[in-house]
Design a protein around this nucleic acid. Structure first.
Length: 261
DNA sequence: ATGCCATAAACATTATGA
């Protein structure tokens, strides 16, 4: 089973690239972030025609996440539990059924948090704590569980070409990394780092200042695996070449292959 | 300290992103 995550930065603008990439990469499950449209505006038919079931948690203009799956999606959770007043579309979760087994997959768009400090940063840290609480509950099920998405977290200096440029940023501040470590300490394995400890593994390059041309990137898109999912992990891949396509997203797909299914 | 670029909508400036 191949599970991928990709922040497309508008599904409407990126539909042709998404279609091209789905045919090329042949993922079984895809977590999309920043679709930037309401549910009814999502290009559902175009994606269903490629053989995917679709669950959308959309929002006008900002945020928005979706799950695509070749297999049935069941037991859907829309929105991150823990705060009924939070109306930002950043979390969608479902069970992907395979014969004799089930894998639960959550797609997340974790808040950016800039400028920091400030209310947006407070929201980011609160959201990370809610994610930790929800993840702890899911881990008690002792099942294969994958939380994939745009975490807006640079876990370590190794994950940035110029870490010194990010020390005051919400993606890399000490409180952000501490919250990341509290999440990981529940027992998760980050798939990409588990398979490759090299420097220079990035998933995002800013549109500005020639970041892509200079390979001035950061690694902020992650796949967190429960122990039962980590046991089945085979390989990972970053589809970096997609960043060089015409009118690209500033993020590229991150992919993990598993032995189940 | 700001813009550098990209997106959507408030439509020609603003909010947001990272």
């Amino acid at each position: 089973m191949r599970i991928a995550t990709w922040n497309v930065n508008s599904i409407k603008t990126r539909l042709d690239l998404l279609t091209r990439w789905l045919k090329e990469a042949e993922p079984d499950v895809v977590c999309l972030q920043e679709i930037k449209c309401v549910d009814d505006a999502f290009p559902r038919t175009a994606i269903e025609d490629l053989g995917y079931n679709v669950v959308v948690h959309g929002q006008k203009t900002y945020n928005g996440v979706a799950l695509l799956s070749r297999l049935a999606l069941e037991d859907v959770t829309i929105g991150l539990p823990g705060d009924d007043a939070d109306d930002q579309a950043r979390f969608v979760e479902a069970v992907v059924s395979i014969p004799g087994r089930a894998v639960r997959v959550a797609g997340i768009y974790l808040p950016n948090g800039n400028p920091a400090p400030g209310p947006k940063y407070d929201y980011k840290l609160a959201w990370m704590e809610r994610l930790r609480a929800h993840a702890a509950e899911r881990l008690r099920l002792e099942e294969p569980y994958v939380i994939a998405g745009d975490y807006n977290v640079i876990p370590a200096a190794q994950d940035a070409r110029r870490p010194e440029a990010w020390v005051e940023d919400a993606l890399f501040r000490p409180d952000t990394r501490a919250a990341w470590r509290r999440l990981m300490a529940l027992g998760f394995t980050e798939a990409v780092r588990a398979c490759d400890d090299a420097d220079g593994v990035y998933t995002f390059w800013d549109y500005q200042a020639g970041a892509w041309q200079k390979n001035d990137g950061i690694r902020i898109d992650h796949l967190l695996l429960s122990p039962q999912a980590a046991d089945a992990l085979l390989t990972t891949r970053i589809d970096k070449h997609v960043r060089a396509w015409e009118r690209p997203s500033d993020h590229v797909p991150a992919i993990a292959d598993f032995a189940f299914g």
